[in-house]
Amino acid sequence: MTTATIAPGPAAPPARRKARGGRRLNRASGLGLGVAMLWFSLLVLIPLIAVIVTAGEGGWGAFWDSVTNAQTAASIRLTVGTALLVTVVNVFMGTLIAWVLVRDRFWGQRVIEVLIDVPFALPTIVAGLVLLSLYGRDSPLGIDIANTRPAVFLAFLFVTLPFVVRTVQPVLAELDREVEEAAASLGASRFTTFRRIILPSLTPAIAAGAALSFARGVSEYGSLVLLSGNLPMRTEVTSVRILSSIENDNLESAAATAAILLVISFIVIVTVDALQRWVVRRG
């Protein structure tokens, strides 16, 4: 059960998608690749290029003006800042949850295992409603954070929950326990063993999970719609800002802000890819 991964993120030991001396393309597979690439281009590549091109259409000045517009800049600051904060929390909590799931055995563990994946499978609008029912106006706890910045933090925390857990878990499960026992028998304290033996092996997985959780946070939209109130300058995240530009039929300005998000997700992808290759090279 510990390896049951509904993995967002590279759940399996990383960089599996590696060339392993495959065959050359023949006519049928070449045709298949062509059709697949055509579909992928029409669906993903051309539309994403269209975002970048539209963002640049008015020249650098227009682009700069729309992303430094006070309201847009505030939304980018809020989104990136909150996503960073949430990522830090996830690094600690995600590693801790993975640790408990792999190294501990207790009644109800399977329930936690399923709960980890709930934020990944739950529709984001439902996620917002779910959080609102405990942390909104009718909160049984008496905590009402609806329409405030903590609500943005909470929503990000919810939707990014699975990422670090699911990247760290399989790596932790495959760690060699004998090395830890050896370290302990040589007099290393528990903390030293963790810091010197376990942590170095987990770091790439933690970093990959953190990158994915950051990317997911930055791009979040649905869970915030009902929860954060989308108040300009205060709780409006970048995706909401882009949507209001689209609804005002200002596609250029929407594309300019969207381009910033695309650059962020591209950097994240490159980072994760580099991390995975680094792990593979280290063996």
Partner: peptide, 18 residues
């Protein structure tokens, strides 16, 4: 893997632009 880290709003915008 890109679609996993692109905001759904940006996905919508990209399709609308084309």
């Amino acid at each position: 893997d890109m679609p996993l880290s692109v905001s759904p709003i940006v996905v919508g915008l990209a399709l609308v632009l084309v």
